[in-house]
């Protein structure tokens, strides 16, 4: 009888111990202390796609933003001038070197107060909202010249909105097709 009781207590104690420390799936104490290695990254839309040469695309994805400027700014400038040989400045008043040095560090700036938008005519790069027409903004800055009036056939793809309406409440993105 005493033995049975003792065994029972032992089993209970083992179980209790396990519940507190043996749960491999306990999300707050990852059992294996796994490490994760970077494969892809992005800040602003379409930067790798537009400005990075084919042979550099994986390297760009695995260079941390603080080191991207030194590694890629010159190449970005060459790419910009290849896309638009007539580039002088753009609607933000940035010459080729300044513009591409900003872009090469691929982070999205976000304002913590006020409107968050890629560009709305007044606010520039204060975030990226779902409805922002980021492609036309980038085309304008690449091809539009200082007044935004250059190369009019190339500065707007005339797709101005998503094919499904966004939601007013979380999670904001439209349901899948």
């Amino acid at each position: 009888m005493k033995n049975i009781l003792r065994t029972g207590i032992l089993i209970l104690a083992t179980m209790a111990l396990c519940f507190t420390s043996c749960d491999e799936d306990d999300p707050m104490t990852p059992a294996d202390d796994s490490r994760y290695m970077q494969e892809d990254q992005m800040g602003r839309p379409a930067i790798n796609t537009v400005f990075v040469d084919a042979g550099d695309k994986d390297a760009f994805n695995t260079t941390t933003p603080s080191k991207q400027g030194a590694a890629f700014a010159d190449k970005f400038q060459s790419k910009l001038l290849a896309l638009n040989p007539g580039y002088s400045t753009n609607a933000l008043g940035l010459d080729a070197e300044t513009f591409t040095s900003v872009l090469a560090t691929d982070v999205l700036t976000v304002a913590t107060e006020g409107k968050t938008t890629f560009f709305d005519g007044n606010n520039v790069l204060t975030g990226r909202a779902l409805s922002d027409d980021v492609v036309s903004v980038e085309l304008l800055l690449i091809f539009g010249g200082p007044e935004g009036t250059g190369n009019p056939g190339l500065t707007d793809d005339h797709v101005d909105a998503n094919d499904k309406a966004f939601l007013n409440s979380f999670p904001y993105l439209a349901t899948p097709h």
Binding site: Y36, M37, Q38, E39, D40, Q41, M42, G43, P65, D106, V107, L108, T109, V110, A111, T112, E113
Partner: peptide, 10 residues
């Protein structure tokens, strides 16, 4: 007042 943000997959 301004954050630099980006996303990574690892």
């Amino acid at each position: 007042s301004t954050l630099n943000t980006w996303v990574e997959s690892k």
